[in-house]
Amino acid sequence: MKAIGIGNSNNNGGCAGDTNKGKSPPTRSKLALKGSSKIVSDFFDYSINSILYQRGIYPPDDFKMVKKYGLYMLISTDEEVKAYIRRILSQLNKWIYNGKINKLIVAIIDKTNDEPVERWEFDVEIFNNKNLDQEMDEPMPDKEHVNNTNKSKEEIQQEIQAIIRQITASITFLPVLEGPHTFNVLVYANSNTKNIPSEWIDSDDKEIKNGGETVGFRSFSTSNHKVDTFVTYKINNLID
């Protein structure tokens, strides 16, 4: 997983070309950023719901089908769970918009010993965001970025669809979760993040003991964001 994580950053740098496309007017990019943040946080919303359903954190009765991304997605109908996810996402949306976080983790934790058994990781990469990287010498509109701005909504949706399908399909190889499990949401925030709500506290990284196994999924990108998805899970030693 880490190998993947590293390489990830490669996409960001380099390839300074196509400068003729240049930058779009600031107002428009701001709007684009807002829309992009919305897409990303929406994706998180449905992904979290999907994970909760697929991994059986809450019983299937609590979920209803809705159509999204051209798929039938299952979202929780439990008011408390809904409110809980909403609270997380409202904050996430702000952070994504301001480029304050670079990772979202949904850790699935065994209730019996509080040990993380599964770790869903969403790496958020922000393109060309001045707020984030002051160090970046110039705002280089790299190839990827230019490509992404041309990406239509349908294309983005298709990319997301593919990831959601993969998340759904992942239950085929993920170990069966036995006994009660719960989940935790972590974010990796920049050190300059201010005004962190009191609900969010510093935490350990909830890594899987002994490393586990990681599977990378597809990624999707909008004009401003790129999201990579991984799942790390505990290896059942009995099989080994």
Partner: peptide, 27 residues
């Protein structure tokens, strides 16, 4: 390396809600 060593891992503190709805035996 230009690494932000003070990167913070934040956890959403409130525990996820337990399932409160009664189990629907008829479902």
């Amino acid at each position: 390396c230009g690494v932000d060593t003070h990167q913070r891992i934040l956890q959403f503190q409130p525990p996820p809600p337990e399932r409160s709805a009664p189990i629907n035996l008829c479902s």
